[in-house]
Amino acid sequence: MTQKELFASGHRGCPGCGAAMATRMMLRATGDDVIVVSPTGCLETFTSMYGESCWEVPWFHGLFENAGAIASGVEAALKMQGRTDTKVVAIGGDGGTFDIGIGALSGMLERGHNVTYICYDNEAYMNTGVQRSSATTPYASTTTSPAGSHSMGKTRPKKNLAAIALAHDVPYVATASIAYPQDFMNKVKKSLTFQGSRFIHVHAPCPIGWGFDTALTVEVGRLAVETGLMPIWEAEYGEITKVRKIREVKPIEEYLKVQRRFRHLFASDAGKKELAALQELCNKNIEKMGLAGERKVTTDVS
């Protein structure tokens, strides 16, 4: 049941790295006839020491903000060379995708290149030391949105990048989580069957940046989904066609409590408002996306 490993051992990722999991799963789904493009980020840094690359597929890292454009150029060249069987996939973190790379990504989506762009979302700039990104969950403490006597962490909502991708009228957009590998791999595979640009947002917890035990990467990822914080869905040609139902909706506290970045919310009563807001966010997701079917959760966090 194991296939040829395309993501070689010996990379320098942290133990329990969610980004590494996402990448391995992605490569299992794409197979070896693929060219992968990555922006700058953790994944790039820990995989690509000169002479010690762990990529067993052709891989290109340009800059932080241009993976979408590089992938476009690669795809255009393949088209001219008649090498259209070879797939082009980009994978980058939330910093390189939600923030600095959104221009190039939007350009790629607008032009409709045959590329699947995958954003592994670990909710902050982990490569440079856990600075907040526009993907950071509200009220998380990061090194540039630290919790303190006058701060409850990051104050702004998480950018809904998948919805922005969807607004480009591309044929396939999906969200996923490393906690559900089969679902994610199926989505990668499925994306490759569409003509045009595809975007997949995969949630990939980071034990170091979020502050949890390295064994819990998958567990934390699962909790994000089960609380309704990270809705898992799929859209084809602009319509949401599938959502992942949550069997038993869990209160957001279960997710937050295991992570150091939310510790300040529980340190005193001062965090109650924020906890309630986060629960409300989950409730809204559940309701809006229909994640719980008939069941709806109202957990009182006070």
Partner: peptide, 22 residues
């Protein structure tokens, strides 16, 4: 493949990706 891109940054990047692809 004539690509009308989203910025000069992307213009240079697209060309770079194409050259890297051969």
């Amino acid at each position: 493949e004539y690509l009308r891109v989203d910025s000069e940054f992307s213009a240079a990047s697209v060309a770079q990706g194409a050259v890297a692809a051969g």
